[in-house]
Design a protein around this nucleic acid. Structure first.
Lengths: 215, 215
DNA sequence: TTTTAATAACTGACTGGTCAGTTATTTAAT
DNA sequence: ATTAAATAACTGACCAGTCAGTTATTAAAA
C-alpha cells in the first residue's frame, strides 16, 4: 500500500500520531522485545525506513509513546480535587472517571505495557509512577484528608484509604485486559464500581446523627 | 563451573527444580521473548546443552514452569472454604493467606509473567485463570453466599463482593513487584490488609441487633 | 504553459549481531 | 569398555537499524 506523502507539518504530526497508535497496539500485544518495527510500520501504512525518519530507535519510540499517552491524563486526574463539593460527590465523580478510563482502555493498556517491561525499563516505571500513580493517589488521599478534617469522613490513614479506593479499578483493568480476551466472564464495570463506591460511602462517610441523638 | 552429574532419578528432579527456579527469575525479569536460555542455564549452573536434556524447548519450559508453580497453590486456596467457622473467622483467614502470598512473592511473580505474556500465550492465560483465579474467586464467593443464607452477611452479588475482597491483594502484588523495585514508598501489607478487612467486616457482617430492638 | 532541475519523503534489500536449538566431542561412572 | 551426562562449538533464522536508490512535489527556467 502506497501512502501519500506528509509534506505539511500538520500531516507529519498526523503521521506521528498514527505511528504512535500502531506502536501502542504492537507494544501492548507483544511487549517491547517481541514487538517488530516492521509490524509497527506496516500497521501505520508506511515502510520501516519511514518509521526511522520519525523515531530514531525502537527505544525512543517506546519512551515517547509512554509519555505521549500519559501526559494528557495527568491534569485530568488532578482536576478532581479542585472543587469543593462533598466527599460523596467526589466519590461519585471518581466512579465516573474510573468508568471512562476502563471503557476507553488507553490507560489500562499503558499499565499493562509498564508492568510487562518494568524489568527492562526501571526509569520508565519511575516516570510513570511519578506522573500518574503517585499523583492520582495523592489527589485521592488529599480529598480524604480534607473530608476527615471536616468530620465528613471517618479516621484512618488517608494514603491507605486511597489505595483501597483505587484497588478495584486496577483489578478491573487487569481483568479486562488480561482475562476477558481469553474467555473469562465479563465484569460489569458499572455494577462493580457502584457496589464498591456504595460500600465505601457506608464505611467512610460520617452521617449527622442529630435525629437519633434526639431519641 | 563444572556440575556434578545427575545420575539418580532424585538428582535429576533436583536439577529440574533448580532449572525451574532459575527460569522463574529470568522469565519474571525479562518476559518470555527477552529471556535467554543461556542465562537460565548458567543461573542453574549448567550449560545450555544440559538444559535441553531436561526441557525440549523454551516454550515447554515456560508452560511447565507456570503449571509447576501454580498447581500446589490451587488446593491451598480451596481449603479455606472447607471449615464451618463464622464469616469473620474466614475473613481473618483470608487476610493471613493473602499476607503470606504477598510476602513469599511466588504467586505475584507468576501473575506478572502471565500479564506480560498474555498476548503471546492466550491458552496459558486460560489455564492460569481456570486453575487459580476462577477457583479462588469461586471459593470466596461461596463463602459469602453461605454467609448470606445464614443472614450473617448483607445482600449483594457474591461474585462482585469476592472481587472487591480480592482487589486490594492484587493491587498490593502489583505495587510490590512493579513499583517498589524502582523506588516507590513501600506499602505496609499488614496495615493495609487489616484496614481493608476491617472495613469489609463493617459493611458485610450483619450484627445481631437484639439490644437495640429492645429499646 | 511546459520542461527540467532540485529537493525531500519514502522504500526495501542488506548487514551485523543475537539467540534458540543441534551436534560432535569430552568426561565421568559402572 | 560401555553407557550416558554434560559441554561448547556450531548453525540458521530472525530482526533492528542503515543506506543507496526511487518517486512525488516544488521551484525555476525556457
Amino acid at each position: 500500500m502506497k501512502m501519500k506523502r506528509a509534506i505539511q507539518q500538520q500531516d507529519k504530526e498526523t503521521r506521528k500520531k498514527n505511528i504512535l497508535q500502531s506502536a501502542l497496539d504492537v507494544f501492548f500485544n507483544k511487549g517491547f522485545k517481541a514487538a517488530k518495527m516492521d509490524e509497527i510500520a506496516s500497521n501505520a501504512n508506511i515502510s520501516k525506513g519511514t518509521l526511522y525518519l520519525y523515531f530514531s530507535s525502537k527505544e525512543q519510540l517506546f519512551v515517547e509513546l509512554i509519555q505521549q499517552i500519559a501526559s494528557p491524563k495527568v491534569n485530568q486526574v488532578e482536576a478532581m480535587v479542585n472543587n469543593d463539593s462533598t466527599l460523596e460527590d467526589k466519590l461519585n465523580l471518581f466512579k465516573q472517571h474510573a468508568k471512562n478510563m476502563l471503557v476507553d482502555q488507553q490507560l489500562p493498556k499503558l499499565m499493562k505495557i509498564i508492568i510487562s517491561d518494568s524489568g527492562a525499563f526501571p526509569e520508565l516505571v519511575t516516570t510513570y509512577r511519578e506522573m500518574i500513580v503517585d499523583r492520582a493517589l495523592k489527589t485521592m488521599s488529599q480529598i480524604i484528608k480534607r473530608a476527615q478534617s471536616n468530620k465528613e469522613c471517618r479516621q484512618g490513614d488517608p494514603i491507605e484509604l486511597a489505595q483501597l479506593l483505587v484497588a478495584p479499578v486496577i483489578f478491573s483493568a487487569i481483568w479486562r485486559i488480561v482475562f476477558e480476551p481469553s474467555g473469562a466472564t465479563k465484569i460489569n464495570i458499572d455494577s462493580l464500581l457502584a457496589l464498591h463506591i456504595n460500600m465505601l460511602k457506608q464505611v467512610l462517610i460520617v452521617k449527622d446523627r442529630v435525629d437519633e441523638d434526639a431519641i
